[in-house]
Simulated scan of single mutants.
Amino acid sequence: MTQTDALSIPLPEDDQAIQWLWDVKTPGYVFDPSIVLARYRRLRELLDTGLIVSLKANSNLELLIRCGHGFVDGVELASLGELDLAVGRIAATKYVNNPSMDETFMRAALASRCVFIIDSLGQAERLAGLMGKQPAPQTVLRLNAAELMPGRRREPADHFGMSPQEALLAAAALSRADVPVIGLHSFAGSHQFRVDDSGGDSADLAHALAAFAADAAGATGAPIEFLNCGGGFGERFHDDEAAFAAYRERLAPLRRRFRLVHESGRGIFAGAGLFATRVRAVKTLGGRAIAVCDGGLSHNFLLARTESAIKKYARPRLLRRQPTADGAATAPAQYVGSTCSRADVIGWQPEAIAAPAVGDLLIFEQCGAYHPSYSVSGFLSLGAAGAYIHQSGASE
Protein backbone atom coordinates (compact mmCIF):
# COMPACT_ATOMS: atom_id res chain seq x y z
CA MET A 1 0.00 0.00 0.00
CA THR A 2 1.46 3.36 -0.97
CA GLN A 3 1.52 6.36 1.32
CA THR A 4 -1.32 8.04 -0.53
CA ASP A 5 -3.42 4.87 -0.12
CA ALA A 6 -2.78 4.74 3.64
CA LEU A 7 -5.90 4.52 5.79
CA SER A 8 -4.44 6.28 8.83
CA ILE A 9 -1.90 9.05 9.31
CA PRO A 10 1.56 7.42 9.14
CA LEU A 11 3.41 7.43 12.48
CA PRO A 12 6.74 5.66 11.89
CA GLU A 13 8.67 4.27 14.86
CA ASP A 14 11.51 6.69 14.19
CA ASP A 15 10.69 9.84 16.18
CA GLN A 16 12.80 11.90 13.79
CA ALA A 17 10.32 11.14 10.99
CA ILE A 18 7.48 12.85 12.86
CA GLN A 19 9.28 15.93 14.11
CA TRP A 20 6.62 18.03 12.38
CA LEU A 21 4.27 17.18 15.25
CA TRP A 22 6.26 19.41 17.58
CA ASP A 23 4.95 22.39 15.61
CA VAL A 24 1.34 21.63 16.53
CA LYS A 25 -0.06 24.07 19.07
CA THR A 26 -1.66 21.95 21.79
CA PRO A 27 -4.20 20.82 22.56
CA GLY A 28 -4.95 20.30 18.91
CA TYR A 29 -6.19 17.97 16.22
CA VAL A 30 -4.35 17.12 13.03
CA PHE A 31 -6.44 16.09 10.03
CA ASP A 32 -5.21 14.63 6.76
CA PRO A 33 -7.55 15.06 3.75
CA SER A 34 -5.66 12.49 1.68
CA ILE A 35 -6.45 9.87 4.31
CA VAL A 36 -10.12 10.90 4.35
CA LEU A 37 -10.32 10.42 0.59
CA ALA A 38 -8.46 7.10 0.70
CA ARG A 39 -10.79 5.76 3.40
CA TYR A 40 -13.85 6.94 1.48
CA ARG A 41 -12.69 5.23 -1.71
CA ARG A 42 -11.79 2.01 0.11
CA LEU A 43 -15.09 1.72 1.99
CA ARG A 44 -17.06 2.51 -1.16
CA GLU A 45 -15.08 -0.18 -2.99
CA LEU A 46 -15.70 -2.79 -0.29
CA LEU A 47 -19.43 -2.07 -0.33
CA ASP A 48 -19.74 -1.66 -4.10
CA THR A 49 -22.60 0.80 -3.50
CA GLY A 50 -23.00 4.52 -3.19
CA LEU A 51 -21.59 6.02 0.02
CA ILE A 52 -23.00 9.10 1.77
CA VAL A 53 -20.75 10.96 4.22
CA SER A 54 -22.15 11.97 7.62
CA LEU A 55 -20.61 15.37 8.31
CA LYS A 56 -21.54 15.19 11.99
CA ALA A 57 -18.48 12.98 12.45
CA ASN A 58 -16.16 15.79 11.38
CA SER A 59 -17.41 19.15 10.20
CA ASN A 60 -14.07 20.97 10.14
CA LEU A 61 -14.34 23.56 7.37
CA GLU A 62 -10.73 23.43 6.20
CA LEU A 63 -10.92 19.66 5.91
CA LEU A 64 -14.22 19.85 4.02
CA ILE A 65 -12.79 22.35 1.54
CA ARG A 66 -9.92 19.98 0.75
CA CYS A 67 -11.80 16.72 0.41
CA GLY A 68 -15.49 17.51 -0.04
CA HIS A 69 -15.18 17.19 -3.81
CA GLY A 70 -14.49 13.48 -3.35
CA PHE A 71 -17.81 12.73 -1.64
CA VAL A 72 -19.44 11.89 -4.94
CA ASP A 73 -22.60 10.29 -3.54
CA GLY A 74 -23.52 13.14 -1.23
CA VAL A 75 -23.39 14.19 2.39
CA GLU A 76 -25.78 13.83 5.33
CA LEU A 77 -26.39 17.02 7.30
CA ALA A 78 -27.89 17.01 10.80
CA SER A 79 -28.04 20.73 11.57
CA LEU A 80 -28.47 24.13 10.02
CA GLY A 81 -24.82 24.83 10.79
CA GLU A 82 -23.71 21.78 8.79
CA LEU A 83 -25.97 22.85 5.92
CA ASP A 84 -24.30 26.27 5.91
CA LEU A 85 -20.90 24.56 5.64
CA ALA A 86 -21.96 22.36 2.74
CA VAL A 87 -23.84 24.88 0.59
CA GLY A 88 -21.56 26.17 -2.14
CA ARG A 89 -18.88 23.62 -1.28
CA ILE A 90 -20.57 20.28 -1.95
CA ALA A 91 -21.95 19.76 -5.45
CA ALA A 92 -23.27 16.25 -4.75
CA THR A 93 -26.65 15.52 -3.17
CA LYS A 94 -27.26 16.94 0.29
CA TYR A 95 -29.47 14.91 2.66
CA VAL A 96 -30.91 16.56 5.78
CA ASN A 97 -31.71 14.32 8.71
CA ASN A 98 -32.70 15.39 12.21
CA PRO A 99 -35.76 14.51 14.33
CA SER A 100 -35.90 18.09 15.65
CA MET A 101 -35.89 19.78 12.22
CA ASP A 102 -37.88 23.00 12.62
CA GLU A 103 -39.40 25.30 10.00
CA THR A 104 -36.27 27.45 9.72
CA PHE A 105 -34.10 24.42 9.01
CA MET A 106 -36.68 23.06 6.57
CA ARG A 107 -36.93 26.30 4.62
CA ALA A 108 -33.14 26.52 4.33
CA ALA A 109 -32.99 22.90 3.14
CA LEU A 110 -35.75 23.56 0.61
CA ALA A 111 -33.85 26.55 -0.76
CA SER A 112 -30.72 24.40 -1.02
CA ARG A 113 -32.52 21.61 -2.91
CA CYS A 114 -31.81 19.02 -0.23
CA VAL A 115 -33.33 15.56 0.04
CA PHE A 116 -35.27 15.22 3.30
CA ILE A 117 -34.94 12.12 5.46
CA ILE A 118 -38.28 12.02 7.28
CA ASP A 119 -38.08 10.84 10.89
CA SER A 120 -41.74 11.02 11.98
CA LEU A 121 -45.31 11.58 10.84
CA GLY A 122 -45.26 15.01 12.46
CA GLN A 123 -42.17 15.94 10.49
CA ALA A 124 -43.81 14.78 7.25
CA GLU A 125 -46.89 16.88 7.99
CA ARG A 126 -44.73 19.91 8.85
CA LEU A 127 -42.89 19.64 5.55
CA ALA A 128 -46.13 19.13 3.62
CA GLY A 129 -47.49 22.30 5.20
CA LEU A 130 -44.61 24.32 3.74
CA MET A 131 -45.38 23.38 0.18
CA GLY A 132 -46.25 26.36 -1.95
CA LYS A 133 -44.82 27.68 -5.16
CA GLN A 134 -41.34 26.21 -4.64
CA PRO A 135 -40.57 22.79 -6.15
CA ALA A 136 -41.34 19.89 -3.84
CA PRO A 137 -38.26 18.16 -2.42
CA GLN A 138 -37.50 14.47 -2.69
CA THR A 139 -37.95 12.59 0.57
CA VAL A 140 -36.78 9.37 2.18
CA LEU A 141 -38.63 7.60 4.99
CA ARG A 142 -36.53 6.58 7.99
CA LEU A 143 -37.55 3.28 9.60
CA ASN A 144 -36.59 2.45 13.17
CA ALA A 145 -34.42 -0.68 12.95
CA ALA A 146 -35.95 -2.37 16.00
CA GLU A 147 -39.50 -1.68 14.80
CA LEU A 148 -38.66 -2.86 11.31
CA MET A 149 -37.21 -6.13 12.64
CA PRO A 150 -39.04 -6.79 15.94
CA GLY A 151 -37.27 -9.28 18.19
CA ARG A 152 -34.29 -9.70 15.88
CA ARG A 153 -31.98 -6.81 16.80
CA ARG A 154 -29.36 -7.44 19.49
CA GLU A 155 -28.91 -3.81 20.49
CA PRO A 156 -31.52 -1.80 22.44
CA ALA A 157 -34.10 0.15 20.47
CA ASP A 158 -33.27 3.81 19.88
CA HIS A 159 -35.61 6.77 19.34
CA PHE A 160 -34.90 7.43 15.67
CA GLY A 161 -37.18 6.79 12.72
CA MET A 162 -40.69 5.40 12.51
CA SER A 163 -42.56 2.18 12.90
CA PRO A 164 -43.72 0.68 9.60
CA GLN A 165 -47.28 1.75 10.39
CA GLU A 166 -46.31 5.38 11.03
CA ALA A 167 -44.08 5.39 7.95
CA LEU A 168 -47.09 4.47 5.79
CA LEU A 169 -49.07 7.36 7.29
CA ALA A 170 -46.14 9.69 6.60
CA ALA A 171 -45.91 8.42 3.02
CA ALA A 172 -49.60 9.12 2.51
CA ALA A 173 -49.32 12.62 3.99
CA LEU A 174 -46.41 13.48 1.70
CA SER A 175 -48.20 12.01 -1.31
CA ARG A 176 -51.26 14.18 -0.68
CA ALA A 177 -48.99 17.24 -0.78
CA ASP A 178 -47.36 15.99 -4.02
CA VAL A 179 -44.03 15.48 -2.24
CA PRO A 180 -42.29 12.44 -3.78
CA VAL A 181 -41.02 9.61 -1.57
CA ILE A 182 -38.07 8.10 -3.41
CA GLY A 183 -36.38 5.88 -0.85
CA LEU A 184 -36.18 4.21 2.54
CA HIS A 185 -33.55 4.49 5.24
CA SER A 186 -32.61 2.67 8.43
CA PHE A 187 -29.60 2.72 10.72
CA ALA A 188 -28.97 0.21 13.50
CA GLY A 189 -26.30 2.21 15.37
CA SER A 190 -22.57 2.75 15.67
CA HIS A 191 -20.28 -0.28 15.39
CA GLN A 192 -23.25 -2.44 14.37
CA PHE A 193 -22.02 -3.61 10.97
CA ARG A 194 -21.86 -7.38 11.03
CA VAL A 195 -22.59 -10.30 8.72
CA ASP A 196 -23.35 -13.40 10.75
CA ASP A 197 -26.68 -14.59 9.39
CA SER A 198 -28.16 -14.12 12.87
CA GLY A 199 -31.49 -12.77 11.69
CA GLY A 200 -30.51 -9.29 12.83
CA ASP A 201 -27.32 -8.47 10.99
CA SER A 202 -26.68 -5.71 8.46
CA ALA A 203 -27.77 -7.70 5.40
CA ASP A 204 -31.01 -8.70 7.11
CA LEU A 205 -31.75 -5.04 7.81
CA ALA A 206 -31.30 -4.23 4.12
CA HIS A 207 -33.64 -7.05 3.12
CA ALA A 208 -36.21 -5.87 5.68
CA LEU A 209 -36.13 -2.42 4.08
CA ALA A 210 -36.61 -3.99 0.65
CA ALA A 211 -39.58 -6.01 1.89
CA PHE A 212 -41.24 -2.84 3.20
CA ALA A 213 -40.70 -0.99 -0.09
CA ALA A 214 -43.79 -2.54 -1.70
CA ASP A 215 -46.00 -1.27 1.13
CA ALA A 216 -44.48 2.21 0.89
CA ALA A 217 -44.99 2.27 -2.87
CA GLY A 218 -48.61 1.27 -2.34
CA ALA A 219 -49.12 4.26 -0.04
CA THR A 220 -47.67 6.74 -2.54
CA GLY A 221 -48.51 5.19 -5.88
CA ALA A 222 -44.88 5.48 -7.00
CA PRO A 223 -42.00 2.99 -6.83
CA ILE A 224 -39.25 3.19 -4.19
CA GLU A 225 -36.04 3.89 -6.08
CA PHE A 226 -33.29 3.34 -3.53
CA LEU A 227 -32.46 2.00 -0.09
CA ASN A 228 -30.10 3.68 2.35
CA CYS A 229 -28.92 0.71 4.39
CA GLY A 230 -27.14 2.77 7.06
CA GLY A 231 -23.69 1.65 8.11
CA GLY A 232 -22.27 1.24 11.59
CA PHE A 233 -18.74 0.73 10.22
CA GLY A 234 -15.91 0.82 12.74
CA GLU A 235 -12.60 2.66 12.68
CA ARG A 236 -10.81 -0.36 11.22
CA PHE A 237 -13.46 -1.57 8.79
CA HIS A 238 -10.77 -2.48 6.25
CA ASP A 239 -9.42 -5.30 8.45
CA ASP A 240 -12.27 -7.67 7.55
CA GLU A 241 -12.54 -7.97 3.77
CA ALA A 242 -14.24 -11.38 4.11
CA ALA A 243 -17.19 -9.82 5.93
CA PHE A 244 -17.67 -7.30 3.14
CA ALA A 245 -17.46 -10.04 0.50
CA ALA A 246 -20.22 -11.97 2.28
CA TYR A 247 -22.24 -8.78 2.65
CA ARG A 248 -21.98 -7.95 -1.05
CA GLU A 249 -23.13 -11.46 -1.92
CA ARG A 250 -26.17 -11.24 0.32
CA LEU A 251 -27.13 -7.84 -1.10
CA ALA A 252 -26.85 -9.04 -4.71
CA PRO A 253 -30.58 -9.85 -5.12
CA LEU A 254 -31.50 -6.32 -4.02
CA ARG A 255 -29.32 -4.67 -6.66
CA ARG A 256 -31.68 -5.79 -9.38
CA ARG A 257 -34.55 -3.83 -7.84
CA PHE A 258 -32.98 -0.86 -6.02
CA ARG A 259 -30.10 1.56 -6.04
CA LEU A 260 -28.28 0.79 -2.80
CA VAL A 261 -26.40 3.33 -0.71
CA HIS A 262 -24.78 3.33 2.70
CA GLU A 263 -23.62 6.12 4.95
CA SER A 264 -20.64 6.54 7.22
CA GLY A 265 -18.87 9.15 9.28
CA ARG A 266 -16.73 7.16 11.70
CA GLY A 267 -15.39 4.82 9.03
CA ILE A 268 -14.38 7.69 6.78
CA PHE A 269 -12.82 10.15 9.22
CA ALA A 270 -11.48 8.08 12.14
CA GLY A 271 -7.98 7.24 10.92
CA ALA A 272 -7.54 10.67 9.32
CA GLY A 273 -7.12 12.48 12.62
CA LEU A 274 -4.65 12.70 15.51
CA PHE A 275 -5.02 14.45 18.85
CA ALA A 276 -1.93 16.09 20.32
CA THR A 277 -1.47 17.33 23.89
CA ARG A 278 1.57 18.40 25.94
CA VAL A 279 2.55 17.39 29.45
CA ARG A 280 2.29 20.35 31.84
CA ALA A 281 3.03 18.66 35.17
CA VAL A 282 4.16 15.27 36.47
CA LYS A 283 3.81 13.57 39.84
CA THR A 284 3.94 10.09 41.35
CA LEU A 285 0.95 8.67 43.16
CA GLY A 286 -0.12 5.13 44.05
CA GLY A 287 2.77 3.53 42.24
CA ARG A 288 2.08 5.28 38.95
CA ALA A 289 3.38 8.34 37.18
CA ILE A 290 0.66 10.88 36.52
CA ALA A 291 1.17 13.22 33.59
CA VAL A 292 -1.15 16.23 33.67
CA CYS A 293 -1.75 17.50 30.13
CA ASP A 294 -2.99 20.71 28.58
CA GLY A 295 -5.69 18.73 26.74
CA GLY A 296 -8.33 16.58 28.36
CA LEU A 297 -12.02 15.76 28.33
CA SER A 298 -12.89 19.38 27.51
CA HIS A 299 -11.04 18.93 24.21
CA ASN A 300 -11.45 15.21 23.54
CA PHE A 301 -14.42 13.93 25.49
CA LEU A 302 -14.35 10.48 23.92
CA LEU A 303 -10.84 9.69 25.19
CA ALA A 304 -12.19 9.98 28.76
CA ARG A 305 -14.48 6.97 28.09
CA THR A 306 -17.17 8.40 30.37
CA GLU A 307 -19.88 6.68 28.33
CA SER A 308 -18.29 3.23 28.61
CA ALA A 309 -19.13 0.78 31.39
CA ILE A 310 -15.66 -0.75 31.03
CA LYS A 311 -13.05 1.96 30.54
CA LYS A 312 -10.30 0.85 28.21
CA TYR A 313 -8.15 3.92 27.83
CA ALA A 314 -6.09 4.68 24.75
CA ARG A 315 -2.34 4.26 24.83
CA PRO A 316 -0.78 7.37 23.26
CA ARG A 317 2.51 7.71 21.45
CA LEU A 318 4.94 9.55 23.76
CA LEU A 319 7.42 11.91 22.11
CA ARG A 320 10.04 12.94 24.65
CA ARG A 321 11.58 16.38 24.56
CA GLN A 322 14.81 14.96 26.04
CA PRO A 323 16.18 11.41 26.23
CA THR A 324 15.57 9.64 29.52
CA ALA A 325 18.48 9.30 31.93
CA ASP A 326 20.11 5.92 32.37
CA GLY A 327 18.73 4.09 35.37
CA ALA A 328 15.65 6.28 35.66
CA ALA A 329 12.87 4.86 37.81
CA THR A 330 9.99 3.30 35.92
CA ALA A 331 6.26 2.92 36.57
CA PRO A 332 2.96 2.69 34.67
CA ALA A 333 1.82 6.08 33.41
CA GLN A 334 -1.61 7.66 33.64
CA TYR A 335 -2.44 10.62 31.40
CA VAL A 336 -4.99 13.13 32.68
CA GLY A 337 -6.37 16.50 31.66
CA SER A 338 -6.18 19.75 33.58
CA THR A 339 -9.74 20.01 34.89
CA CYS A 340 -10.96 19.27 38.43
CA SER A 341 -13.05 16.29 37.27
CA ARG A 342 -11.95 12.82 38.37
CA ALA A 343 -13.32 11.61 35.01
CA ASP A 344 -10.63 13.61 33.21
CA VAL A 345 -8.42 10.62 32.41
CA ILE A 346 -7.54 10.30 28.74
CA GLY A 347 -4.81 7.67 28.48
CA TRP A 348 -2.98 4.83 30.19
CA GLN A 349 0.39 3.15 29.74
CA PRO A 350 0.21 -0.15 31.68
CA GLU A 351 3.84 -1.15 31.16
CA ALA A 352 6.42 0.48 33.39
CA ILE A 353 8.24 3.32 31.64
CA ALA A 354 10.44 6.21 32.69
CA ALA A 355 8.09 8.97 33.79
CA PRO A 356 7.09 11.52 31.15
CA ALA A 357 8.56 14.99 31.59
CA VAL A 358 7.10 18.46 31.34
CA GLY A 359 7.03 19.47 27.67
CA ASP A 360 6.74 15.94 26.30
CA LEU A 361 4.16 15.44 23.56
CA LEU A 362 1.39 12.82 23.54
CA ILE A 363 -0.15 11.71 20.25
CA PHE A 364 -3.47 9.84 20.19
CA GLU A 365 -4.39 8.07 16.95
CA GLN A 366 -7.83 7.32 15.46
CA CYS A 367 -9.24 10.67 16.60
CA GLY A 368 -10.60 12.02 13.31
CA ALA A 369 -14.27 11.06 13.83
CA TYR A 370 -16.48 12.52 16.58
CA HIS A 371 -13.51 13.25 18.87
CA PRO A 372 -13.36 16.89 17.68
CA SER A 373 -17.12 17.40 17.35
CA TYR A 374 -18.40 15.56 20.43
CA SER A 375 -16.48 17.52 23.07
CA VAL A 376 -17.82 20.28 25.30
CA SER A 377 -15.24 23.04 25.54
CA GLY A 378 -17.01 25.37 28.01
CA PHE A 379 -15.82 23.69 31.24
CA LEU A 380 -13.38 26.00 33.09
CA SER A 381 -13.51 28.28 30.01
CA LEU A 382 -10.61 26.29 28.58
CA GLY A 383 -11.68 26.86 24.98
CA ALA A 384 -11.78 24.41 22.12
CA ALA A 385 -8.78 22.51 20.77
CA GLY A 386 -7.09 23.80 17.65
CA ALA A 387 -7.30 22.08 14.28
CA TYR A 388 -4.53 21.71 11.69
CA ILE A 389 -4.29 20.21 8.22
CA HIS A 390 -1.39 17.91 7.37
CA GLN A 391 -1.10 16.42 3.91
CA SER A 392 0.78 13.11 3.97
CA GLY A 393 0.10 12.43 0.30
CA ALA A 394 -1.43 14.03 -2.74
CA SER A 395 -5.23 13.99 -2.71
CA GLU A 396 -7.39 13.71 -5.79
Score class of each variant (00 low, 15 high):
residue 8 S to I: 12
residue 13 E to C: 11
residue 14 D to C: 10
residue 17 A to W: 09
residue 20 W to V: 08
residue 21 L to E: 03
residue 34 S to G: 14
residue 41 R to L: 13
residue 47 L to W: 00
residue 48 D to S: 14
residue 49 T to H: 10
residue 51 L to K: 06
residue 52 I to N: 03
residue 53 V to H: 03
residue 59 S to R: 11
residue 60 N to R: 03
residue 63 L to N: 00
residue 63 L to K: 01
residue 72 V to Y: 00
residue 72 V to D: 09
residue 77 L to H: 01
residue 85 L to K: 11
residue 91 A to M: 11
residue 95 Y to G: 01
residue 103 E to T: 13
residue 104 T to L: 12
residue 113 R to Y: 09
residue 120 S to Q: 08
residue 121 L to C: 03
residue 123 Q to M: 12
residue 124 A to Y: 05
residue 128 A to C: 08
residue 138 Q to V: 10
residue 147 E to L: 15
residue 148 L to S: 02
residue 148 L to F: 02
residue 160 F to S: 07
residue 162 M to Q: 07
residue 165 Q to S: 15
residue 169 L to S: 13
residue 183 G to L: 01
residue 185 H to M: 12
residue 194 R to N: 11
residue 201 D to E: 05
residue 204 D to C: 13
residue 210 A to D: 04
residue 213 A to G: 06
residue 219 A to D: 02
residue 228 N to T: 02
residue 228 N to Y: 05
residue 229 C to W: 02
residue 247 Y to E: 04
residue 251 L to M: 10
residue 259 R to N: 11
residue 262 H to V: 05
residue 264 S to D: 05
residue 271 G to S: 02
residue 276 A to H: 10
residue 279 V to W: 03
residue 287 G to N: 10
residue 287 G to I: 07
residue 288 R to A: 12
residue 292 V to D: 05
residue 312 K to S: 15
residue 315 R to W: 02
residue 318 L to V: 12
residue 324 T to W: 14
residue 325 A to S: 13
residue 335 Y to W: 12
residue 337 G to S: 06
residue 338 S to A: 15
residue 339 T to Q: 06
residue 341 S to C: 10
residue 344 D to W: 00
residue 360 D to N: 08
residue 364 F to T: 06
residue 373 S to M: 14
residue 389 I to P: 03
